[in-house]
Design a protein around this nucleic acid. Sequence first.
DNA 1: AGAATAGGTAGGAGATATCCTACGCATCAA
DNA 2: TTGATGCGTAGGATATCTCCTACCTATTCT
Lengths: 117, 117
Amino acid sequence: MPHRSQTLPVDRVFAALANPTRRDVLDLLIDGPRSASDLAAHFDMARPSVSEHLRELRECGLVTEARHGRFRLYSINAEPLLEVRDWLGPYERFWRNRLTDLGRLLDALPPDEADRA
Amino acid sequence: MPHRSQTLPVDRVFAALANPTRRDVLDLLIDGPRSASDLAAHFDMARPSVSEHLRELRECGLVTEARHGRFRLYSINAEPLLEVRDWLGPYERFWRNRLTDLGRLLDALPPDEADRA
DNA sequence: AGAATAGGTAGGAGATATCCTACGCATCAA
DNA sequence: TTGATGCGTAGGATATCTCCTACCTATTCT
């Protein structure tokens, strides 16, 4: 009956992605590494706040930091995203077969009937 | 410079997935529809708390509810997960080519070297 | 009708998230 | 060496999250 108690690594990844600013940071880093202040300049919030988001991304392994003089270059580490993709895997069949609705299963509508969606 | 203010639908989906109980609910529903109390029995928390998680999943469209007498059967609607998969898309190249580290980009390793995946 | 069952909502406690300003500590430029 | 720049951390205000117990309605069983 007890089900979960401590925070798994995959939990941290999902939690990190739950914030739009952090997802936007990752999206910016797709094109290549950027410095912290470069990243911060893209957001309508104080620089230290962005710095905190970077720390969260660091702590769940989604970015890495490389010091270059007084700059810190952040770059993507996409590996933790594999856990997200793996979690998503079992759901592929739902959108592949359009079996997204209980009603269709229970009422056993003719499958072609419902293709106007 | 302003970047985001209101909560987009995709934000709600990511936020819903950020909670392990809610992801577990979805995982349970993969095998088919279940009633609310059936779902609640799987978790080490009070039933009304599970009910609240179900409401969140409902409100972001990840589950649908069908009333049958005094039961309510919940079933998956995987469609919102497409947004997650779409967001994940641009990161595929990172784990496909194992270009997860800035160092490798900078050092310009031969690209065929990393195709054991 | 009366009791039991399914399950949602209200209100609140405590924890966590997200932002801010103030500050500290390096590093580089003059 | 002094000042400016890059950037992390501290502490705090406020909002949101996650759980609880108490309570309500609707349906079904006897």
